[in-house]
Amino acid sequence: MRGMKPYLAIFSARFRMMMQYRAAAIAGLWTQIFFGLVMIMTYESFYGSTKQTQPISFAQIVSYVWLGQALLALLPWNVDSEVRAMVRSGAVAYELCRPVDLYSLWFMRAMAWRTAPTILRAVPMTLLAMFALPLLGLGEWRLRPPSAAGGLGFAGAMVCALLLSCAIGTLMNISLMWTVSGDGVVILLTALVSLLSGMIIPLPLFPDWAQPLLRALPFAGLVDLPYRVYLGNIAPSGLPSVLLRQLLWTGALVLVGRWLLARGMRKIVVQGG
């Protein structure tokens, strides 16, 4: 455990720093509730327009939407602004002087950077969506609590989703070493992540022919798979395969990230003196 100590210290320092942005999280809450309500009303109309049974029920969609609004900050859709500044100014060379593994360092930074804002948003959002909406007479639009098995499976799948998100995020950070401004890679990845994770619309609602592709890609593990475990749309018996897919993708992306980082650091030239 001794070797983990510096990484845990990095995590906790950054986590505490991110927890300072409470006001921003609260201010964002209202906007997210608004978006959630509009989405739910849209789905309500779509579900009212057809008699066919859908792969996911309206009640499940409602909870899916609220989970998405609560856990929005967990998605890897921007690069770490501090890493970007380091690469631009050349200060990234200092990172090499630290007696720690650089990839793990960046991974831990990403982890703190994702978890703190997520907790700040998820807790009030869940309380509002679960308990305040019924009080307003919008009981059918509330976030329904999961079954015991669904809840436990969801907790596990979300931990894996966090790891997967950090692996993708760290890969984005590493890409900065080649593109400097990082606009291109970030824009492309952000677009892919939002569409293919289930953030724009739940993945089961995409056409049936697209399902094998969506299943094969890593992004479903960020949003769609854990949420459907919560909803019971994926039965508890399907949980091991969900976790396995998330972890395999995380492992693969970590390996790619480490390889790219090693290559990037080999060609680094430090200027000035």
């Binding site: 327009s49 057809t50 606009d183 824009i187 677009a191 569409l195 619309i201 995409f206 056409p207």
Partner: peptide
């Protein structure tokens, strides 16, 4: 890149709209 990105992000939103109509046929 930013202009393309902006178009891409909103284009992706529209893909979502398309998928919903594909799935449900019509909206009221």
């Amino acid at each position: 890149l930013q202009a393309i990105g902006h178009g891409l992000m909103t284009g992706i939103e529209f893909l979502g709209v398309w998928a919903l109509f594909h799935r449900f046929g019509q909206l009221r």
